[in-house]
Design a protein around this nucleic acid. Structure first.
Lengths: 204, 204
DNA sequence: GTCTATAGCCAGATAGAC
DNA sequence: GTCTATCTGGCTATAGAC
C-alpha cells in the first residue's frame, strides 16, 4: 500500500502539531515550529495537510476523540451513580495528568470558534446526557440522593474535575505552592472529588 | 492638566482593546480591529500604548484587577465560612454574567504566558489564601465541618464557580440546551453552588 | 516524498503632514 | 492629537529541482 510508507512522516507531523497547537493554541502556533518539532521541512506540512487550518482540524478531532470516551463513561456506564462518579474522577485525573495541555486546548478552541462547536456536536462522537439525567431523577425519587437537578450535578462533576487543570496557574498562585506540591494535590483529588460530591448528595 | 484632554481617547482605546482581546485572545486579536472598535485610527493605538504587547498588558492588568477583589472576598472577609461561600458564589456569578469573556481571558493568557504569571503574582493585588486556610482548619477541629484540606475546599469553590462559564460551549453541547436556558442554569447556581458545598462539608 | 527558494500577503509599527 | 501613507518583518503557501 502506498500509504504505509508515508505513514511515519504523516504521524510525526500530527504528533508535532498536537504538541505545538495544544501548548500555544491555533492563532499563536507557527508552522515552522511544528516542522522543527517533527524534524522535517515546512513544505511537508502542506504536502500532507494542505493548510494550517486543516492540520489544526485534524489535531482537534484527534484530541477531542481522546476525551470523549472519558466523558462518555460518566454518562452511559451501567453502574450505580456513586460508582460512576468515583470511576470518572479517578480515570479522568489519571488521564489528564498524562496530557496536561489537552483540556485547556479543547475548551479554548471551542470558545474561540463558536461555529466550530456545531460541527463537533453534529458528529457522532458527541455524548448525550439523557441517560445520566434519568438515573439521577430516579435516585432522587427513591430518596437515595437529595433533590438536585441532573444538569447541575453534571456541571458540578465536570467543573470539579476539569477546572483544576485549566486554572492551574491561577490556583498555584493563590494557594502558593510549587508544581510538585500542586501535582500531589491533583493526585489526592482522584478520591477527594468523589467524596466531596457524594457527601453532598447522598442521604444517610 | 494635559492628560485630561487625552483621557477620552485613551480610555476609548482601552475599552475597545478589552472587548477585542477578551473575545479573541492576544494572538488572534488585530490592532486594526481594536482601532475600528474604538472608532479611531490604528496609529493612535501606538501613540498611546507604543506596542500591541504593552496595550495587551494594560488590558490584562485592568481585567485582573476587576476579578481580584471578588476573589479576595472569599479569602479575607470577616464572616463565617458558610456566609463567605454563599456571598462569593452569588456575587461572582452576578459579576461574570455581566462580563462573560473575562474569566476565560484571564485563565487563557495565564496559561499561554507562564512567565507572565510571575509578574502578576509579584504584584500587590494578588491575594493569599492563609486566612481562609486557618478558618477552615479551626472549623474542622471544632467539628463544625468534616475533615477537608483547606486547599482542596478552595479549589472546589473556585472550580464550581468559574468553570461553568469557561466551559460553556462544551457544557451546552453535553446537556443540550440553548443559550437562554443555560443562562437560567447559571442564575440558579447563585444559590445552588453554596448549597452543594455546604451540604458536603457541614456536619449536622 | 522531500527539500530549497520564493511568492504573496498581512499585520505591527513608524514617518510625516496637518 | 489625529490622520494617511508606507515601511518592514514574518508567516502561510506554492513552485520547482531532485
Amino acid at each position: 500500500m502506498e500509504t504505509t510508507g508515508s505513514n511515519t512522516t504523516e504521524s510525526a507531523i500530527l504528533n508535532a502539531a498536537k504538541e505545538i497547537f495544544e501548548r500555544k493554541g491555533m492563532a499563536a502556533a507557527r508552522m515552522q515550529e511544528i516542522a522543527d518539532e517533527a524534524g522535517i521541512n515546512k513544505a511537508m506540512l502542506h504536502y500532507y495537510y494542505r493548510s494550517k487550518q486543516l492540520l489544526f482540524e485534524a489535531v482537534f478531532k484527534s484530541a477531542f476523540s481522546m476525551l470523549a470516551p472519558q466523558l462518555n463513561e460518566i454518562i452511559n456506564a451501567d453502574t450505580s451513580i456513586f460508582e460512576k462518579i468515583r470511576n470518572f474522577s479517578s480515570n479522568y485525573i489519571s488521564f489528564v495528568l498524562k496530557h496536561p495541555y489537552l483540556p485547556n486546548f479543547i475548551i479554548q478552541e471551542l470558545n474561540r470558534n463558536p461555529d466550530f462547536v456545531k460541527k463537533i456536536i453534529a458528529g457522532k462522537n458527541f455524548p448525550n446526557i439523557s441517560k445520566f439525567k434519568q438515573q439521577v431523577n430516579e435516585k432522587v425519587e427513591e430518596g437515595i440522593i437529595r433533590p438536585i437537578k441532573a444538569e447541575q450535578l453534571f456541571i458540578n462533576i465536570i467543573s470539579l474535575n476539569i477546572f483544576p487543570f485549566i486554572g492551574a496557574p491561577l490556583l498555584k498562585g493563590f494557594i502558593n505552592v510549587n508544581d510538585v506540591t500542586y501535582q500531589q494535590l491533583m493526585e489526592d483529588r482522584k478520591t477527594e472529588i468523589a467524596d466531596f460530591i457524594i457527601n453532598s448528595i447522598k442521604i444517610k
